[in-house]
Computed example of a mutant assay.
Amino acid sequence: MSQCSPFDDLHIRDALDMTLIFAAVDQNISWLFSGPAVLALKKQQQPNMLGIKDFFKNIKTLEIYDVENIYVCEKSLLDYGLNKNDLLLDVQALNFDQQKALIKTQQHVVNL
């Protein structure tokens, strides 16, 4: 689960690296983006203009590694004026109760 802004520290980058590592060894991964973390999925970003390395394009590699369980907080999308068409990947938007249910079904939860 990611809740931090993609422009602060390296939380999203670390989560992406961890997800790709586990996916490479055939683990079934679910990734939930909530709060400002949903901004990491926004299309046509230019982080280089902020002096940040462009790792956002690497998020598209999740499809290559068969990471298909990508979720976003429905409220967070609304808070940032986004909809699913604004995002790099095909995601499933979840309300709060659906997020709680998803988290309960996971064997392990990592919050970055």
Rank of each mutant, 00 (worst) to 15 (best):
D66H: 13
D66R: 03
F55P: 01
V67K: 11
Y65C: 02
V67N: 12
D79K: 13
D8V: 05
Q45N: 07
K100I: 07
D8E: 13
P47I: 14
F22C: 11
L41T: 02
P36E: 15
A37I: 04
Q45F: 06
D90E: 14
G35I: 03
I103P: 06
T61R: 00
T105S: 15
L77N: 08
Y71R: 08
K42C: 04
D86Q: 11
Q46D: 02
L94E: 01
A93Q: 00
V25F: 08
L82D: 10
I21H: 13
K100V: 05
E63D: 08
N69F: 05
A93E: 00
S5A: 11
M49S: 13
K84F: 01
N58P: 00
N111I: 02
L77K: 12
N85M: 08
D17T: 09
D17C: 04
Y80N: 12
S5Q: 08
L82E: 12
C4F: 08
D66L: 04
N83T: 13
Q98M: 07
V67L: 10
I12K: 00
L94P: 00
P6H: 12
G35Y: 15
I12F: 06
F22V: 07
N58S: 01
L78K: 14
M1F: 05
V25K: 15
Y65P: 01
D97A: 05
